[in-house]
Design a protein around this nucleic acid. Structure first.
Lengths: 242, 242
DNA sequence: GAGTGGTCTAGACCACCCG
DNA sequence: GGGTGGTCTAGACCACTCG
């Protein structure tokens, strides 16, 4: 472990974190081996113990390291294990997973909130909302139908903003409501007439049905989506921690 | 915000965190309002700024607070928003969600790893594994069929340990491999003959199909499960963060 | 008892945002 | 320019684990 070279503009704890990560990915530190104690790392890297510690804690959070009190900090096996709980847009996901994304707008309207939508968005029933129904295609094959809802009062001009090529909440971010987290629930269902037709599957084909509420930084719900995903082409991965 | 009373044995930052949380849940601090600056809180609560900060950061992680650089720390709306990414056992979940859990062991055997199992557990194909198939019931209604797999070499005596009433990985924890995280993938599928019969549904009924690999603290995969969940009774909730 | 991580302090300087 | 959070320091004491 060498002293850190002066990467100016990057926080020291981040440099510590990446230096340790580099030692692992380069194979100088192997799974199961013990990391040097915080104190020694601090001296070697020319940082305070608290700073080294912060870098280490980041890596523990990622599952790259683990520690046992009174014993030491160790390199975990299988640090391939990414977090799968990042909120990403359709185009981002496509870039990561390597497919060509396309979105077709099937419907856009201003209508009254159903009870389910109203509850999710913290509105009263029948309050005006913008509803956009889109078909999402991956490599030109239908993947999902989304029904997205936002409050019309909060975002009266959202329909003019190029929904064809952007995820709705990317637009919301630019309007001063940066989305920060989402809660989604999935179920298995069967395709019914219209959804089956749109997705190009038989009626009774399996559908991963997903309800997603997206919250802005300040904790307000800003978007609610009902998603019908083709069971044969769509799966969802999650990381759980104890 | 009062000075902390001497709750001995509890870390000061945790007391800070809970004191702030209490101010929010009791309504003394309302959504959208600004929290006192770190410096002032430190003085009021009789702790150092770094300690107060740590408590605040915990709450930000939970989505209870949010902050803007150079501006302040604010109380988020809707702090109902729990993290849904906690790895819990069937009996824990039942206690939280309020149903009566029951597990019936359908099959237990020592067999060779299929390719899928071997890949997940980092073994070679045909290496001996313990396989346990269980039926999980909620309020005496079938909910899911699980096929759980662990390495026979690592846990030769796992079959003697009361799988009927315990989740497999709870036993693993007691054997010195505390489970720490899991990665699971879900898809929608249709029930086929045997699974349909076991779950008490028609063939072609929707099934939430889940593959779950559970990792121990040190990052080794310790358990791999294939789960068939009844689509009409089972849903899965996840929190995503940006 | 020696070594480790867990907590905590009382400062400090900086970057950012606002009026 | 004044207030905020973001980073960083150089110590300190404690709790836990292990031989």
């Amino acid at each position: 472990m060498m002293p850190l070279n002066g990467n100016e503009g990057i926080a020291l704890y981040a440099q510590v974190r990446e230096a340790i990560r580099e030692q692992i990915t380069s194979g100088k530190l192997k799974p199961g081996e013990r990391l040097l104690p915080e104190e020694e790392l601090a001296i070697l890297m020319g940082a305070s113990r608290m700073t080294v510690r912060r870098g280490i804690l980041d890596l523990i959070d990622e599952g790259v390291l683990y520690r046992r009190r009174g014993v030491g900090t160790f390199i975990a096996h299988r640090h391939i294990d990414r977090h799968h709980n990042r909120l990403t847009g359709y185009f981002e996901s496509a870039a990561e997973e390597g497919f060509v994304p396309r979105i077709e707008v099937l419907l856009r309207e201003i209508t009254g909130a159903t009870l389910m939508v109203a509850r999710a968005l913290n509105l009263r029933e029948d309050e005006p909302i913008v509803r956009v129904r889109t078909l999402r295609l991956a490599d030109d094959q239908p993947l999902a139908v989304h029904d997205e809802h936002v409050s019309y009062r909060l975002y009266p001009d959202i329909l003019d903003a190029g929904i064809e090529t952007r995820q709705l909440w990317e637009l919301l971010s630019e309007r001063g409501d940066p989305v920060r987290r989402a809660v989604q629930r999935v179920e298995a269902r069967l395709a019914e007439d219209e959804i089956a037709r749109l997705l190009g599957v038989e009626e009774g084909a399996p559908i991963l049905y997903k309800l997603r509420t997206v919250y802005s930084e300040d904790g307000r719900p800003v978007e609610f989506a009902i998603c019908y995903n083709r069971g044969d082409r769509y799966s969802l991965t999650t990381t759980l921690t104890r």
